[in-house]
């Protein structure tokens, strides 16, 4: 049989019932076996939970503060929203290596011997480029490019190629008036 107070016991103990309702429950309690039993159980649980709440949890690791502040410092400047803020939260330092390798490949294509030689090739590398060449991925890309370069230049030096070029020259001269 419902007395209408079953859902009020916890809020009553928490002091969260409206005054009239709390007074009604207080008057009801002594005469209701079910509510009295529930109340006693809730009081016991309350004490047990209070003991648990006051027990110390493991302390946060000392590195937590440093990690949070570092992440925030990385995001500082515009802690707002938008695509850039979203991207910035996801970019990682290791992503730089392939990006630099790609940049190096583009630079090689632009400055390759097929293009007219540029005097800037002889200039010393800027600091960022010098650092970039220390990245393993960049060094690997540079090695592959060197090999390709050698193959291309070497192909013009074979006797067969020179013979073909010579024959073509002769044919060209014969065809001239």
């Amino acid at each position: 049989m419902s007395c209408g107070f079953e859902e009020d016991g916890v809020a009553y103990l928490d002091g969260e019932l409206p005054r009239e309702r709390a007074e009604a429950l207080a008057a009801h309690l002594p005469g209701c076996v079910l509510c009295t039993a529930q109340h006693a159980g809730l009081v016991r649980l309350r004490e047990q939970v209070a003991a648990l709440a006051s027990a110390p949890l493991p302390l946060p690791s000392p590195g937590l503060r440093a990690r949070v502040l570092a992440e925030v410092a990385g995001a500082n400047g515009s802690p707002g929203t938008g695509l850039w803020a979203w991207l910035r939260g996801r970019l990682q330092p290791w992503m730089l290596a392939p990006a630099l390798a790609g940049l190096a490949a583009l630079a090689w294509l632009a400055w390759s011997p097929a293009s007219p030689p540029s005097p800037s090739l002889d200039a010393p590398l800027p600091a960022w480029a010098a650092e970039a060449t220390e990245e393993p991925a960049v060094l690997e890309a540079a090695l592959v490019m060197d090999e390709l370069d050698e193959l291309r230049l070497g192909a013009l030096e074979t006797p067969e190629d020179l013979e073909v070029i010579s024959a073509l020259d002769e044919l060209e001269q014969e065809g001239r008036p």
Partner: peptide, 14 residues
């Protein structure tokens, strides 16, 4: 039975 009201101590906050 009726330790109700705002003065009843809530579970202590650490």
């Amino acid at each position: 039975l009726a330790p109700s009201g705002r003065n009843f101590p809530r579970a202590p906050v650490l």
